[in-house]
Every structure is written in structure tokens, then in C-alpha cells.
Design a protein around this nucleic acid. Sequence first.
DNA 1: CGGGGGCTTGAAACTGATCAAAACGCGTGG
DNA 2: CCACGCGTTTTGATCAGTTTCAAGCCCCCG
Lengths: 240, 240
Amino acid sequence: MPHQRLISRLQAVGGLSEQDQTRLTRLPYKVKSLADGEYVLRQGDEPRSCIIVMSGLLSRQRVVNARTQISSFYIAGDMPDLPTLHLPVADCDLCTVGSSTIAAVPHSALRDMMKESPGLTHAFWRETLIHAAIYREWVENLGSRQALGRVAHLLCELTTRMEFVGLADDGSFRLPLTQQDVADACGLSVVHVNRTIQELRREGLIEWQNHTVTLLRAKELRDVAEFSPEYLHELNPREG
Amino acid sequence: MPHQRLISRLQAVGGLSEQDQTRLTRLPYKVKSLADGEYVLRQGDEPRSCIIVMSGLLSRQRVVNARTQISSFYIAGDMPDLPTLHLPVADCDLCTVGSSTIAAVPHSALRDMMKESPGLTHAFWRETLIHAAIYREWVENLGSRQALGRVAHLLCELTTRMEFVGLADDGSFRLPLTQQDVADACGLSVVHVNRTIQELRREGLIEWQNHTVTLLRAKELRDVAEFSPEYLHELNPREG
DNA sequence: CGGGGGCTTGAAACTGATCAAAACGCGTGG
DNA sequence: CCACGCGTTTTGATCAGTTTCAAGCCCCCG
């Protein structure tokens, strides 16, 4: 059951008919295991399949003005290159952060499936819209907040998304990001990210060691980040 | 012909069958004229129709950390709230910049139309993906570039998009933004935007007066902005 | 003629970048 | 088991870009 997390995501966000669920389980796929820092996709590629993140973490990144900017992270259940179905040329690199496993599903299979089911078309379209909303939130984050709020917001977003697919409990989850990665995502220097994380620790808001993040006072952290999760459109909180 | 610009956009980006074109022309709509600074949509609204920008300019904005952040601009031919078809609750405000006219098309009509035509589903989905790519580019812009590059990039993007729908000739077009708007879009203070625009003028890269922008040395401006237009996915340059 | 919004300018304060170097872990090979 | 090396985290000091505050100006509109 390689894309089980995807199915439960789609199910939780919008509901799926029984038929659509079985359609999803019947999708053909190839699993790949990847080490840290491997490229799944390069800018300019025209892939013939979409990938589903099964475990680990991917980052979407591009070199801008002599530094790499990360514009999104993808966790288990996400389909980072779903847009290549309709915009064939990839315009960013996609890279693993920590060892990860992915499943590749041929475009043709996805297209055939959606041809049969408007409900699934709807569900996948909505996934791309949710990711668009996440980009937008990042625009607001980078444009409006200073360092402390930016890093706090990133952590709140990742926690919420992780919780939704069952990868975090009680505000604690594995996060293989280096401080350099956080810097690349937040548009800050590593040095300043380091001091910022130290401040979050000093305030007793988080713990972060051994690639594991724990939110100690989630409410206060959300206040610092001005975080409200509506933009993630995770309508039905996951249960069981 | 209220949504002619939309049709030629969709046509130019991906091609439409004759049938799909007539389907589009048959869409029911209501035209509205709006003054500067009017709200088309507020965060939390659940509209029953989508709007098409016919003339003028809209901004998507939200108040973050006690300042308004603009996360996108929409020009003639754009459908800023197309996402509400699948994500019913709007998560930003939509506001006119300068007097504008819009057409409202009922969700139901759009849904019916797409039910009949996979090609149109494809085309509209792609529109939302292109806007997602634009958000992503803004993330890179705000995260990686400093003031000069940011403002230059914004101008390059708007010029390219305007040209594509025939609203700019020879790098000159009407742009009713105030410097405050530019500041809100670029995550800068008005004061600094002012000095930045002066620098662009001093370098002989642009003219900007009376709400009209002219790119004097487009190539050099693009260099300053590190701008490359692929992310806009405007495959076939418009002719005639 | 007055008022107000937008543009412009100057000076001071601050946030975050840069440079440099040290300390820490951790895996590898001897 | 220890030594080495490399990537990551941490610290300090200096520097640069941008913000903030404050005031003046211009011009259009009422």
C-alpha cells in the first residue's frame, strides 16, 4: 500500500467514493529509495510520471541571486510534481532532504483515471490549489515577518501538515532539516537562523535536537508565527 | 465579448477546440464596474461565482504582522478566484487597484461546462497552476533578492503578462500602482521603494510617471531582476 | 483656496548579513 | 579504539541594507 497516505489525505480533504478509492489503489507505480540530497527532478525535465512521497521529505528549490531558495517542502502523501501533468516542463529542482522513498505513477495512468472520474479530477486539482495556497502563505511569511516569526511559521506549518497525515504526535516529529535548509526556506542566513532557533528554545517554545522537533508551547508558538491553519484546507481532522 | 481576453489567453497557452471556444463564449456573466480600492472578495467569503478581470488591475492581499502583504496582481483575462470552485472559502481579500471592470460567471455554469469538456477542465486547471508558479516566483523574489532586484522583477513580470494579453506595446503600459502598493507587494517600506525606483530611473532602466511605466532598457532590467519568463508558461507569443 | 494623498528627502536606529573561527558530532579508515 | 576529516552548529565582531520617524513638497480635487 504505497500511496496509502495520499489516499487518506484525499479522503480527509474532500471525500472519495468507494469506486474512486479502488481506482487509486489500482494505480501502477514504481517505488524508489533515495539517499539524502538526491535530485528527483531537475529544472527543465519533462517527466512522464508523477511521484508520490511515501516517506521522508522533499524540497523544491532553485538558485536565485547566488543562493538557493527553497519554495516548498513535501511530506508523505504529497505529489510535488503533479503540475507536470498539465505544465510538462519542470521549473524547479526537487531534492530529497534526508533519505526518502517515493513512488512514481505514470502520467498516462493518472490521466486515464481522471478521464473516468470527475471526483478524482476534482480531488487532484484541489491538491494543486492547496499547494498554491501554501506558496501564497510563504509569500506573506517572507514579505511580512521578521526572522523569529518566519521560522516559527515554518515550524507551525510543518507540524500541522505532519499531524494531518499522522506523522507527528503531540507536537513532536522527525524533521531532517539542517539549519542551512531552514535558512534557504526562510530567506535568512544560517548564522541568523541559528540565533533565531536559539531564541525559540530560550523562550521555551520548542525543542529541536537530533533531527526531532517538539513544540513545547504550541499556542504561544502559533502566536509568535501568527499562524492560522485554514490555508491548508484540512477540513476533517484525521482520526484513527 | 466580455471575456475575450480570457479566451485568447487560454487559446494561446494551450489551444482550444472550436467547440470549446463557443462553449466559452456562451458562458453567462454579469459585468460590474468598480472604483479604485473596492473589495471584490473578502477573506472568508464563499462566492457562488468566479470573476474574470476585463480591465484594470486587482490585488490579492492580506494583513500580516500589522502590514498588508500583496501576494499577487491580476490583469485583464485573469480569473483571480478560480480556486473558489474547488476550495469554497476565500483565504485572501481581492481588491481593485485603480478603476476596473469585472465579469462574474456562476460556478454552476463553469462546472457544467467543464463536465462536458475535458479540454476546458485542463485549460482552467492549467491557469491555476500558472498562478501557483507565479506565487512560487514571488517566494524566490522575496526570499532571495534585495530591493532593486525585487522591484525590477515585479516590473518584468507585469510587463510580460501585459504584453501577452496585448496591454503593453514596446515595453510601455499603464500601471495604476502607488509606491505603497509596490512596497506591499515587495515586502519593503514605501520610503525604500521610492529610493529604489529612483535608482532604476537613474540607471536609465525605466520611466514611471502618471501611472505609466516604460522599460527603457528591457534587457538590462531583466538582468538586474534575473528575470526569465518561462515560469509564466506563455508558450505561444501572441500575434495580432 | 484649502486639504489630502502620494512622492521625496534626511537622519538615526535596527535587523540581519557577512566574515572568521572555534566547538561539536559522527562516520570512516587505520 | 583512536585519529582524522567533514559537515553542522555555535559564537563574536563588524558591516550593509532597510526601516522608522519626521518633515517638506507637489499636485490634483473639491
